[in-house]
Design a protein around this nucleic acid. Structure first.
Length: 282
DNA sequence: CATATGTCCTGAGAGC
DNA sequence: TGCTCTCAGGACATAT
């Protein structure tokens, strides 16, 4: 089971690298260990020219991206996609280390981007109105959106609620793992069409979304069986021990203790749910 | 316009 | 044992 950094994992990365705020970038390099380079935009020499000497002003998050704001009006955007990690300590392996940012003036000497599968990217973009730059691709953050906004943005859709929750233009931050967990807590069947959900059900989904994400952040995200996801100090998260449906197919439901968790495929992604807790019809 | 599908990538695990 | 094949799902491009 692969890692998939979603909002809680990316938020954990963000919090983990906060100690670098105030330090200065003295070098940016691409280690030789990475064979096929990830996307670095603009090019590495340009990035080095613009970033070296800059001071780190703040660390934010934009959906599933970590944003490192520099004091020169630009920001480094780390997008981990499937297997990317933003680290202060040594990476899981020397192989797949994609970018090394050397720092001065911090107890940590480096900020690293490691990515086993290399689907992620690092970009340098203007710090100003970053949200607007992503406005056509990112909806409100999952922890900031209101229940009314959520219902408004998805209420007319004919898509299954599980599929719709993965649409970053609707709400930013939810991915495949947490979508299943959220709908289980909300007691909503994942195949229910959005346009057949009533206001109370949207409220339940919204409340469950906040609860699951908040708890997952408290446990520093989910490290699945392949062990890929780590926090900024290369330590595993703990929320996988609290999953109630994800990757638990054929196990007895921990909530009702009667039915077996089922796995189905929606939009080429696995969905896990309890047929007793999450009935098809209400 | 809304929604669906194809694509990239690596390594774990299945099956023979 | 060692090979080949499938699958995991982020975001975006392209197709319907």
């Amino acid at each position: 089971m692969a890692l998939m950094p979603e909002l809680p994992e990316v938020e954990t990365m963000r919090r983990g690298i906060l100690p670098i705020v105030g330090s200065r970038i003295v070098d940016v390099s691409r280690p030789r260990s990475s064979k096929k380079p990830i996307t670095i935009a603009p090019t590495l020499p340009t990035l080095r020219r613009r970033a070296v000497g800059a001071k780190i002003r703040d660390v934010g998050r934009l959906g599933k991206r970590v944003v490192v704001h520099l004091d020169r009006g630009e920001a480094l955007i780390f997008e981990p996609r499937m297997t990317g990690l933003v680290l202060l300590s040594d990476p899981p392996t020397a192989e797949h280390l994609r970018l090394q940012i050397t720092l001065d003036g911090s107890q940590h000497h480096q900020l690293l981007y490691w990515d086993r599968r290399g689907l992620g990217s690092v970009r340098l973009l203007p710090s100003e109105n970053l949200e607007q730059q992503w406005a056509d691709r990112l909806g409100p953050d999952a922890l900031k959106i209101t229940a009314e906004q959520l219902a408004e943005r998805l209420g007319q859709s004919r898509r299954a609620i599980k599929v719709a929750l993965l649409d970053q233009r609707a709400v930013a931050g939810v991915g495949n793992l947490y979508a299943s967990e959220i709908l289980h807590l909300a007691k909503i069947h994942p195949a229910r069409p959005c346009n057949e959900l009533c206001p109370d059900e949207w409220k339940a989904i919204h409340a469950a979304m906040r609860e699951v994400l908040r708890l997952a952040i408290r446990h520093e995200g989910s490290t699945l069986s392949d062990g890929t996801y780590r926090n900024a100090l290369n330590l595993a998260g703990g929320y996988q021990n609290h999953h109630r449906v994800y990757d638990r197919a054929e196990e007895r439901c921990l909530t009702c203790r009667r039915a077996e968790i089922q796995r189905v495929v929606q939009a080429q992604r696995s969905t896990f749910f309890c047929p007793a807790c999450q009935p098809q019809r209400r």
